[in-house]
Design a protein around this nucleic acid. Structure first.
Length: 851
DNA sequence: AGCACGCCGACT
DNA sequence: GTCGGCGTGCTC
């Protein structure tokens, strides 16, 4: 239970009170709290706990404190003790927000580990961990001083501003600024405060609002079969009121079950049609027939009860479950390598059920895109409202409800994205990480730059639970661990319900171009297949991992290319919105009609993205139903699901999209998958390129050929059909890919043979950035040696948001090295650079296990 | 990260 | 002469 000791949002803490450091009317208590504050300062802050609060405060509860001169912020109690700080006077904890811990001891342990491992502060971890509905905003507000006597002389500006402030009860700085344009608000407010015309105060408000449902029910005297019958008679002369009563009874059959009345009916159920029923209801309320009441409802209340879904497991699924259980005898982690369509989900469901029955909690992690799909619907059918969903597209209130629901025991099982590892589990028996190879499990910005899969493994150790990592295309790291006995390995190579593997067709673009068979981006082969599909009402998925219309526009006369002002990249042309956009910083600008450099009107789009493919499809097949699915078309909360649903209902003939189309689309009618630009993925300048390309191509291919007895087709357009990666994809030969890649990784000492820490040095001035990076690299070399420090070198995109970047890569062997000591050495050197007086405003990002 | 305090250029 | 620019250093 979360008892708010104060009622928000109305609490205003006058500033004068905040400044006070001792409480006058009581003896000083000897309880001190070390608090985790949401700031990037690597230590806890010790505050004093008042005597009244000392019996109530608990580790993991949130408190409000004054931090600095004028800031009021929320903190979480990290530790309680009796040691007064030696060198300073501790301030008092102003308020206690939770009677019971909101952050569990197990979480604090995990958060400390994360801060330590990923080289950030526990405050930064806390900041990302808590849904913002549980954080508290502190905002300075201004208010007219009712005691102001106009004794001081005011300037014209001050009078104007004061008049505005007088009109309102209280205003934030922002609001004042909006009301009085063109005035230097901060300065004027400051002088008004000085003249005691206005008062400043800190308003703290809790953002989470429970959802309230307004309901009505029959008053006690009528809440029985006899009561209702009597009432019907009484109302014979009032047909409208009788109608309202009947309506109520149709939802809540009190005659047959009087107990149902207790729960009542939403008031909204009466008023949706017309106003007269509303007024009749008002009369009934007034006459004491009905009564109103309010209940706090869950935002997930409308979910169906779990039907006892029976799953028939295939031989291979049963075998997989047995093997997993065997491995769990002596291993914490099992890698489940199951090809697309092998039925991993049923295995998961079985494992989850078992864990739940044994009374432990279960966490099921999915990549963001997969979470919006059918798998959640399926899980919901099995687990009903015992399952919580934690998703970034959910509102804050919904996330707070999941958080609290776990603590209260309402959700024993949570399906969620990366950040679900922060939830308040106390007894995790099983964690499943599906699509464990997905790079989106690694958070890049802001700190903590954590990898949810790796965090999950650590979490499981802490909870003495188990982990299942699942993938059709495991990361080299996980497979390596499985090969070397650190993880158990279970493989499923049979397609469920004997769906055939797709047939592959490599289309040589060079050949097609030579014989002039290409129609823009489409090879004749692809056009033929699409044509066939349209004629036979079968669906096609086209994959191009690049959004927008074209990645750049260029002048034919002078070769000018539209570039971002803030980043060293070309601007992507988006046709629908008629804009050039930077995919790095979000900068937008108008599309020039003529070349800004030479004035020529011959500015052409170059290259192609999903939008161009969509556009050309409309031209080639005017009657086909084409839908695009990428970040631009799925921004709205339910847009993604809508597209999926339309596709499922076969209201879309051709779906063209980015990697979004590679996840969770399991539809029988997709007989062709077309892949553009496979070469770009394969040759991406990065050591994981081959692995990624293999994963991506395999995942997309898996969308085809899901209909039993009828293999689908996968068309890959490439300039080089002989590439070995394509061969591996076609043969579904993970092993060879793994063996080839792993020996390269070993040779060049890349993960899993080493750990990588990437340092990104940033500065607005290129020379300063380079100088800082070089200095830092030299400092690191002293202890780590030449072989472990690579760089600095500029990344592919040298400048982002007007910051020049230089990367230093540190490779550390996995064995025989004091990882902790090395990390604190790195931290130390980074701090040296940051505090170097000759290198001002340099920023360094430390990314442990960088991807 | 904020936020206040402190020392040098363009205005009444 | 003042306002106000943002550099620097601290926060229990």
């Amino acid at each position: 239970m979360f008892l708010n000791l104060q009622h928000y949002p109305d609490t205003a803490v006058p500033t004068q009170m905040l400044v006070q450091n001792t409480l006058p009317f009581e003896e000083e208590s000897t309880v001190f709290a070390d608090l985790i504050l949401p700031v990037p300062i690597p230590k806890l802050f010790t505050y004093r706990v008042s005597r009244a609060m000392s019996g109530l405060i608990k580790v993991g509860a949130r408190v409000i404190v004054q931090f600095g001169k004028n800031r009021v912020i929320t903190a979480v109690v990290g530790k309680l003790h009796h040691t007064p700080p030696a060198n300073y006077q501790a301030k008092y904890v102003l308020e206690l927000l939770d009677e019971e811990p909101l952050v569990m001891a197990s979480q604090l342990e995990l958060f400390r580990w994360m801060a330590d491992y990923y080289l950030c502060t526990i405050g930064e971890v806390m900041n990302v961990a808590l849904p913002s509905g549980l954080k508290i905003t502190s905002q300075s507000k201004v208010q007219f001083n009712p005691d102001f006597d106009y004794a001081e002389l005011l300037t014209e500006e001050e009078v104007g501003l004061l008049e505005e402030i007088k009109k309102h009860k209280s205003l934030s700085y922002d609001e004042v600024a909006r009301l009085t344009e063109g005035v230097n608000v901060n300065a004027v407010i400051k002088s008004l405060v000085g003249k005691r015309a206005v008062i400043l105060f800190e308003q703290v408000k809790e953002k989470y609002k429970p959802k309230i449902s307004r309901k009505v029910r029959l008053t006690e005297s009528y809440a029985s079969a006899a009561g209702v019958n009597g009432l019907m008679k009484e109302l014979e002369r009032q047909p409208k009121q009788q109608e309202v009563l009947l309506r109520y009874l149709s939802f809540v059959p009190v005659q047959s079950n009087a107990g149902l009345n207790q729960k009542g009916l939403e008031k909204a159920a009466f008023t949706q049609d017309d106003n007269s029923s509303n007024s009749s209801l008002q009369t009934l309320l007034k006459n004491g027939v009905f009564e109103q009441f309010e209940v706090t409802v869950s935002r997930f209340a409308d979910l169906p009860e779990a039907p006892a879904a029976v799953i028939n497991l295939s031989e291979s699924q049963q075998g997989a479950i047995r093997q997993i259980q065997d491995h769990f005898q002596d291993k914490e982690v099992v890698l489940l390598h199951g090809i697309t369509g092998s039925g991993k989900t049923e295995v998961y469901i079985h494992m989850i059920k078992q864990a739940l029955e044994s009374g432990t909690q279960v966490l099921f992690l999915l990549p963001e895109i997969a979470l919006t799909t059918q798998i959640v619907v399926r899980l919901r059918k099995v687990f009903g409202d015992k399952m919580g969903i934690y998703h970034s597209k959910f509102s804050d209130n919904e996330r707070v409800e999941v958080w609290k629901g776990i603590i209260e025991g309402k959700f024993q099982f949570v399906v969620g994205v990366r950040s679900a590892v922060f939830l308040p589990f106390t007894n995790l028996g099983l964690i499943i990480v599906d699509e464990e190879h997905e790079t989106s499990y690694k958070q890049f910005d802001p700190a903590p730059r954590y990898h949810a899969r790796d965090v999950a493994v650590v979490m499981a150790y802490m909870h003495h639970g188990k982990v299942v990592l699942g993938s059709a295309t495991p990361s080299l790291e996980s497979y390596y661990h499985a090969q070397h006995g650190r993880y158990g390995l279970v493989e499923m190579f049979e397609r469920y319900g004997d769906a055939a593997l797709p047939e592959f067709l490599l289309v040589d673009i060079k050949e097609e171009k030579k014989s002039r068979k290409m129609k823009n981006e489409f090879s004749s082969v692809m056009l033929n297949y699409m044509q066939y599909n349209l004629e036979h009402n079968e669906q096609t998925i086209l994959f191009q991992n690049r959004r927008g219309y074209s990645p750049y526009i260029q002048c034919e006369e002078c070769d000018w290319i539209a570039q971002c002002n803030n980043c060293d990249v070309s601007l992507t042309y988006h046709m629908k919105v008629a804009e050039l956009r930077c995919h790095y910083c979000g900068h937008k600008e108008q599309v020039p009609r003529t070349c800004p450099n030479c004035g020529s009107p011959k500015v052409k789009t170059m290259g192609f993205g999903t939008e161009k493919i969509e556009d050309e499809l409309h031209l080639i097949y005017p009657n086909a139903r084409v839908q695009r699915m990428d970040m631009d078309t799925t921004r709205a909360k339910n847009a993604y699901q809508q597209i999926i649903q339309d596709f499922e209902n076969e209201q879309i003939d051709i779906l063209v999209g980015t990697q979004m189309v590679s996840k969770g689309l399991d539809f029988g009618n997709v007989s062709v998958v077309g892949i553009f630009d496979a070469d770009r993925m394969i040759h991406f300048p990065e050591f994981r390129a081959s692995e990624r390309a293999f994963q991506m191509l395999t995942q997309v291919s898996g969308r085809a050929g899901r209909r039993a007895g009828k293999p689908g087709k996968v068309l890959i357009q490439t300039h080089n059909p002989g590439q070995e990666i394509l061969r591996w994809v076609i043969r579904n030969d993970y092993r060879t890919m793994y063996n080839t890649e792993i020996s390269e990784r070993e040779e060049y000492n890349y993960p899993p043979f080493s750990r990588l820490i990437k340092l990104i040095v940033k500065h607005t001035d290129r020379d300063t950035a380079q100088r800082a990076a070089t200095t830092l690299a030299e400092l690191l070399l002293t202890e780590l040696g030449q072989s472990r420090v690579l760089g600095p070198e500029p990344p592919l995109v040298e400048r982002v948001r007007n910051q020049y970047l230089f990367n230093i890569l540190i490779k550390l062997e996995r064995e025989k090295i004091n990882f902790k000591a090395v990390k604190s050495f790195i931290q130390e050197k980074v701090t040296d650079i940051l505090t170097d007086k000759t290198l001002k405003n340099v920023n360094v990002v430390v990314d442990v296990d960088s991807m």
